[in-house]
């Protein structure tokens, strides 16, 4: 997403705008939400950092909606366009998130899950550029090439094609992002400041007293591939697969079969590589979920 924001920033810059683009993130690890902000204006930009009233929000993966730290709904107004990359439709997401303004879906493609390269960033940029309506096709093409300069020629070409394909595909929504007028001062809600009181050090020291709090973080949301154990062919040699699991997310039942803790398995696929009998399979997460829903429906 950082690269995506740079492509969009460069494209806008090439089209003559004053530009600012910036990523913001915490832990640099898989599953941690990352934000990337792009501002463009015809005059010098003084604002910086967090965009509190965005004109366009691009959600690169719909699983982010379940991550509180991602704050997908923050700052949305009736003028904010929300574009979410998903396998489900816009009506579903409008219903789920109660988005007050225009809501669009960028269909997630199957390339995401096949272990091959993802063109997710390029696709998001292609759509965003078109929705803004002020980015030319040539600038998008040049910017994508420029920002991916260090990648091999063929990878760069694939990304450029993906960005342009999505750009072309969104002609119907060109310029849907109109921006929003600045709030007059009188309409601006004052901050609800409080007078922070002194509290005992027992409370105010940054100490985590509870053990096992990481259990509450559903790292299973980060998974794009799911390990599925074929119990019929499993030899129950669970020290081979369960022990190497870095997150202790492969539990062993009383009969000695490994069971995947789906709330916490991050989908690293180490168990798949470890299994000497090749009976743990890597299944794309969305396929596994579809199958689960179908099964639940049948029952």
């Amino acid at each position: 997403m950082k690269t995506a924001s740079r492509i969009l920033g460069t494209a806008l810059f090439l089209d003559g705008f004053e530009v600012q683009d910036a990523p913001r993130y915490g832990a640099e690890r898989r599953g941690a939400p990352i934000f990337a902000y792009v501002r463009a204006d015809s005059r010098e930009i003084h604002e910086r950092g967090i965009i509190d009233r965005p004109d366009l929000v691009v959600v690169a993966d719909d699983s982010l909606c379940q991550v509180p730290a991602a704050g997908v709904r923050l700052g949305l107004s009736a003028q904010t366009v929300v574009l979410i990359r998903s396998r489900e439709d816009a009506a579903t997401w409008r219903e789920r998130l109660r988005v007050p303004g225009p809501m669009l879906v960028l269909p997630a493609s199957s390339t995401d899950d096949d272990g091959g390269e993802s063109l997710l960033g390029a696709e998001c940029v292609g759509a965003a550029a078109r929705l803004l309506g002020v980015v030319t096709r040539d600038s998008l093409k040049a910017a994508t090439g420029q920002e991916l300069e260090r990648l091999p020629e063929e990878v760069r070409a694939r990304n450029v094609r993906a960005a342009l394909r999505v750009f072309d595909g969104h002609a119907d929504h060109a310029g849907i992002v109109t921006g929003q007028p600045t709030l007059p001062l009188a309409a601006q809600e004052p901050p609800r400041w409080i007078d922070l009181q002194v509290e005992s050090a027992d409370v105010a020291a940054p100490t985590i007293h509870a053990g096992g709090t990481s259990v509450q973080v559903r790292t299973g949301l980060w998974r794009t591939m799911r390990p599925v154990v074929d119990h019929e062919r499993c030899h129950r040699c669970h020290w081979m697969c369960a022990l190497p699991c870095p997150d202790n997310a492969l539990l062993v039942d009383d009969a000695g079969y490994p069971r995947v803790d789906l709330d916490h398995c991050k989908g690293c696929m180490i168990c798949v590589a470890q299994c000497p009998f090749h009976v743990i399979h890597a299944v794309p997460e969305h396929e596994a979920q579809t199958a689960e829903r179908a099964e639940a429906g049948d029952a």
């Binding site: 901050p191 609800r192 400041w193 409080i194 922070l196 509290e199 005992s200 027992d202 409370v203 100490t207 985590i208 007293h209 509870a210 709090t213 509450q216």
Partner: peptide, 26 residues
């Protein structure tokens, strides 16, 4: 002097403290 801090921020802090099992003697 004002330490800029909002009601919302303290609420978020209280949630984190609850997860961390911080007891509030006061």
């Amino acid at each position: 002097p004002r330490l800029l801090y909002t009601e919302h921020e303290l609420k978020e802090m209280r949630k984190l403290q609850a997860i961390a099992a911080v007891e509030h003697p006061a």
